[in-house]
């Protein structure tokens, strides 16, 4: 009985797919995409929308993070000395700050003397009655300190306030806590957005698997013939998988183009607004530097959604 087996090509010849086979399968898959216009269009559209949302969220996140970072870096610690500070105490504070600067914790600082403060006050209050009777001696000296990284702020402020010349009643001015709170709120917002995104992805997978289902039904006859002739399961499946992957990829490319256009326009508009409201250094990032990353993310997500969609459909409707 076994002698007749030799007429059949041996199994080992087929464990790895040949290049022309891959070409053939890809061609079949691509032609499915073209033939199945309406459903393909619907699937691609959902992918485009899903990825567009994903992109907006990613870009929003990138911008918010970068701007919070900018704001944090721009935060100044304002610290006042006691009005009756002694030269020794002042020297102690300056030595401390200089030491931190050498340690790479403080990036720069400005000392504001009593006279300087008095001039500034005069500017702000002009010749207001409030200024009457005030002399530079009533003013407090202060330092405006910028840190190299906001993470040092807590420790730095703690150590600084331990020095005797520092005025502790006025507190040490710093806006980091507010920014931290803002970040926490944004995190919650992120979770909500991710949930919406997950729903969109499920919808995309479902639509793609439906598209592939239609192709499978349209190709019943061909699949049947392939089975009778002895096609391997993988050979029958691959064109459908390719179809799904291709839909995903086309969706990704289209969505990327739309995203880049929409974003560039938005960036332009928002930056004008930010400048006019003199909110610089806040700004909306350029698309260019993140373009490649966004495209790769789109392509990966598109292909994964397409792949899962077609895989599910093939497994369910292709009884090979």
């Amino acid at each position: 009985m076994n002698t007749e087996r030799s007429r059949v090509m041996s199994r080992k010849d087929h464990t790895s797919m040949k290049i022309r086979t891959v070409k053939l399968l890809v061609k079949e898959g691509a032609s499915n995409v073209v033939k199945n216009k309406l459903m393909t269009f619907a699937s691609i559209t959902t992918i485009v929308i899903t990825l567009f949302f994903l992109g907006i969220i990613l870009l929003l996140a990138v911008n918010i993070t970068s701007n919070i970072e900018v704001m944090k870096r721009d935060l100044k610690i304002t610290v006042f000395l006691n009005i009756d500070v002694s030269p020794f105490q002042r020297e102690e504070v300056i030595t401390f700050i200089d030491g931190r600067k050498e340690a790479g914790i403080v990036s720069e600082y400005v000392y504001i003397s009593k006279e300087q403060m008095f001039e500034d006050m005069k500017q702000i209050l002009s010749n207001d009655a409030l200024m009457k009777g005030l002399t530079p001696e009533n003013m407090a000296e202060s330092f405006e300190i910028k840190l190299t990284d906001p993470v040092y702020s807590e420790e730095f402020i703690q150590q600084l306030s331990a020095l005797s010349g520092i005025n502790k009643d006025n507190g040490i001015g710093y806006g980091k806590e507010e920014l931290d709170k803002l970040e926490a709120i944004l995190k919650v917002f992120n979770y909500i957005v991710m949930a919406v995104l997950a729903v969109l992805m499920v919808v995309s997978v479902f639509l793609i698997s439906n598209t592939i289902r239609l192709t499978v039904f349209a190709r019943r006859r061909q699949i049947e013939i392939m089975k009778y002739v002895g096609a391997l399961d993988s050979f029958i499946r691959w064109p459908f998988i390719v179809e799904g992957l291709l839909i995903g990829f086309i969706g990704a490319v289209l969505s990327f183009l739309i995203t880049s256009q929409a974003y560039s326009w938005l960036q332009h508009v928002l930056n004008i607004v930010l400048t006019n409201f003199s909110l610089a250094p806040l700004n909306v990032l350029e698309f260019g530097p993140v373009a490649l990353r966004i495209f790769v993310i789109y392509a990966i997500f598109g292909v994964i959604i397409g792949g899962i969609g077609s895989f599910l459909s093939v497994r369910k409707h292709l009884n090979v």
Binding site: R5, V8, M9, K227, Y228, V229, G230, L232, D233
Partner: peptide, 14 residues
Amino acid sequence: PQSEVPYLRRSLGV
């Protein structure tokens, strides 16, 4: 096994 069926079919013409 299902995986062998294609090879059976290749030994047949229908």
